[in-house]
Simulated assay, not measured.
Amino acid sequence: MSGARWAVAGWGLCAVAASSWLALVEVFWLPLRVGGVLVPVSVAAAVVGNLLLVGAALRLSGSKVVAVLPAASWLVVVVAAMVRRPEGDLLLVGGGATGIVNTAFLLLGVLAAAFGAGLALGAPPRPAPVAAPSGSGSGGAR
């Protein structure tokens, strides 16, 4: 593989790691309460994080495939949090005020991820990086 392909693969790995970590943190922030009041920090973090990570992945890698990876990996982590474990643990519940925050988290997070991915896929193709010209840059020998 050429150096450019390794760089794109590295950016893809970084994008997946960052978005998976962010999704996991957001899921654990869902029941956050301050003074007994539910604080929906995860909803804002999901929207902002999904938009920023998709855009950053596109800018840094130049690849539309890499740009979609944060949205896809965020969704995988969140869907996994919705599945009841054999021990009976469930991270995303559906009842009461917590259920409303969880629903907003899922809806707005997926919308932000889809919007960011749509912007990335609709962006004009980026030109391949060009090697810097060699020489002194003075315009030639005189």
Rank of each mutant, 00 (worst) to 15 (best):
W74G: 01
G96M: 03
A18R: 05
F115Y: 05
L111E: 05
V65T: 15
G140V: 15
A120N: 12
V34E: 06
V8I: 15
L51H: 11
L69E: 07
A4T: 13
S61C: 12
W11V: 03
A114E: 09
L121E: 14
G109P: 00
A132L: 14
G116Y: 05
L32C: 04
G10M: 13
G135S: 04
A72Q: 12
R33N: 11
G12T: 06
P129N: 10
G135R: 14
P31M: 02
L111F: 01
L38P: 07
G12K: 06
A17G: 11
A112T: 04
A71E: 09
G62A: 13
R5C: 03
A45E: 03
A112E: 06
A57R: 06
A18I: 00
A114H: 08
G122T: 13
S2F: 07
G109S: 03
S73E: 00
I100L: 15
V37F: 10
A67M: 14
A46N: 03
G12E: 04
L92K: 07
I100T: 13
V47S: 00
P70H: 09
V78F: 04
L108I: 01
V54C: 04
P127K: 11
S61P: 12
A4I: 12
G137N: 07
R33S: 10
V83T: 06
G55E: 14
V68A: 15
R33Q: 08
A80D: 07
L69D: 08
L38E: 11
F105T: 05
G12V: 05
W29M: 08
A117G: 15
L121S: 12
V68S: 01
G49V: 00
G135D: 11
L106N: 01
E26H: 08
P124T: 03
R85C: 03
A9S: 11
L119N: 14
N102G: 08
G36F: 10
M1W: 06
G99M: 11
R126G: 06
S134Y: 08
N50Y: 02
S19E: 06
L90W: 00
L90Y: 03
G135M: 11
L51W: 08
A17Q: 07
L111H: 03
E26D: 13
G55K: 12
G12P: 03
S19D: 02
D89E: 15
P125L: 09
L32F: 07
V41I: 09
P124W: 15
L91T: 01
S20A: 15
A104H: 00
V47M: 02
N50E: 05
A123L: 10
A128N: 01
F115E: 13
A9D: 12
M82R: 04
A23C: 10
V27W: 06
G12C: 10
V47I: 15
V39T: 10
V77H: 03
A120E: 07
V76F: 03
G116W: 01
P129Q: 03
V25M: 04
K64D: 12
L121W: 15
V65R: 14
A18F: 11
S42L: 02
G88M: 10
G3Y: 10
G3I: 11
R126Y: 06
L53V: 14
R126Q: 06
G12N: 08
G55P: 00
G122N: 08
V110T: 13
S19Q: 08
A128H: 08
V65L: 13
V93M: 09
V37L: 04
T103F: 00
L107P: 02
F28K: 13
P129K: 02
